[in-house]
Design a protein around this nucleic acid. Structure first.
Lengths: 191, 191
DNA sequence: TGGATAGCTGAATTGCTATTCATTTATTTG
DNA sequence: CAAATAAATGAATAGCAATTCAGCTATCCA
C-alpha cells in the first residue's frame, strides 16, 4: 500500500482550517481555500473528513484534547491545593495567551450550533481531572461549597474573558495585572 | 404616504430572527424562513434590512441596548457602592436567566465574525455607566486596583458562564448557589 | 520492470438560498 | 373618487461553494 507522499496531511489541514476559520468564520470558510492553504487538492479534504461540519468538529476535539492535556500536566499530586491551583491557573492563561487563534476558536465554537452534541460532551469529559482538583480543595475545607462544575465554569468564563480583552485591545497585560487577576480568582473561590 | 398595514413589522422580524438563529445558527438561517416565521414575504425583509448580515447586526444592537438599559436602570446614585453592585449583579443574572435565547445569542455572537467591527464598538460603548460604577468603587478604596475594563470583563465572563451552565444542564440553580456565586464575584473584586 | 494498489487531483456538477424586481395591494390626498 | 405614492409580495434569477468522481501519480512488490 502506498504511503502519503507528504507526512501529516491531517495536521496541515487542521492548521489551515484553524487559521482560516478564526479569521473569517465558519460561513465564509471555503473548503477550497482550506485545501489551498494546506497545499492539497480540494478532493483530498474529503478523503480525511466527511464534510465541512465534520472537519470543524474533529478540529475542535483535536485542539481541545491537546490543550487540556497540557494544562492538566501541571498538576502534581504530591503538592498542596493552592500550589496546584496556581499552577493550573497560570498554565491555562499561558496556553490561552500563546495561541490566540486556538483560544478564540475553542471559546467561540463551544456552544455554537456547528458543533455536534457528541463533540460537546466529549469536550466536557476532558475536564474531569480539574473537577477532581476542586473537589479535593473543598474536602480540605479550602474552597467554597459551590457545585464544582459551576465553580469551574465561573473561573473559566472569567479567565477566557480577560484573555479575549487582552487580544481584542491588542495590548499585552502587564504581569501586575495578570497577578491581580489570579488574586481575583483565588479570592473568589477560597473559603 | 402610506403606513405599514401591520404595526411593528421590524419587531416581528427581530423576534423571528432571534428564535431561529439561536435554534439553528447563522449558517442555516434562511431569510425565507425568517420571513415565514414573521408572517411576511421574503422581499419585505429587504425593505427593512439590506441583507442577512445587516439583519443580524441590527438585531444584535437592538437587543443589547434594551438589555443594557434594563441593567443600568437599577443603579441609584444616592446609594453606596456595595448596594449598587449587588443590585446590578442580580439584575444582570435575572435578565440573562429570563430569556435564554437572547442571552445565548448576545454571548455567542459578540466576538463572532458575523458582527461588524462597528457593531462591536457600539456595544462596548453601552457599558460606560457600569465602568463608571467600578471606577467610583475604586476611588472609594473598596475595589481592587485592576483596570476597570478588565475587571468588568472578568465579572461578565464569569456570570455569563454560570448562566450558560444553568441552561445547558437544564437544572435551575438554587437560590443558595446563586447567592454563593454573588459572593464569589464580590470576593473577587473587593479590596 | 510492470502490474496492482493506495493516494491524490481539481474541473464539473449539483443543490441551495440570498437577493431582485415586476406586479399587486393599501393608503393618502386633492 | 381617482391619481399618486408607499408597502408588500413571492416567483424567478443568479451566483456561489460543497461535494463528487473519472482519471492521474506515486509507491509497492513479484
Amino acid at each position: 500500500m502506498a504511503r502519503p507522499r507528504d507526512t501529516n496531511k491531517i495536521d496541515l489541514i487542521y492548521k489551515a482550517a484553524l487559521n482560516l476559520v478564526v479569521k473569517i468564520g465558519y460561513v465564509e470558510l471555503k473548503m477550497s481555500d482550506v485545501a489551498k492553504e494546506a497545499g492539497i487538492a480540494t478532493g483530498t479534504l474529503y478523503i480525511y473528513f466527511g464534510n465541512k461540519e465534520d472537519l470543524i468538529n474533529k478540529l475542535y476535539l483535536h485542539l481541545k484534547k491537546q490543550n487540556t492535556q497540557e494544562i492538566v500536566s501541571k498538576y502534581k499530586a504530591e503538592d498542596g491545593f493552592f500550589i496546584n491551583f496556581k499552577r493550573v491557573w497560570y498554565q491555562y492563561l499561558e496556553i490561552s495567551s500563546r495561541d490566540s487563534h486556538q483560544m478564540i476558536f475553542l471559546e467561540q465554537y463551544f456552544r455554537s450550533p456547528y458543533l455536534r452534541e457528541e463533540t460537546k460532551q466529549q469536550t466536557e469529559a476532558l475536564l474531569a481531572p480539574i473537577i477532581e482538583l476542586i473537589v479535593a480543595g473543598q474536602e480540605q475545607g479550602l474552597v467554597k461549597e459551590v457545585p464544582a462544575d459551576i465553580l469551574l465554569s465561573y473561573l473559566i468564563g472569567a479567565v477566557n474573558e480577560i484573555v479575549k480583552v487582552h487580544f481584542d485591545k491588542n495590548q499585552k497585560m502587564t504581569q501586575a495585572t495578570i497577578d491581580a487577576c489570579f488574586e481575583m480568582s483565588w479570592h473568589s473561590i477560597k473559603r
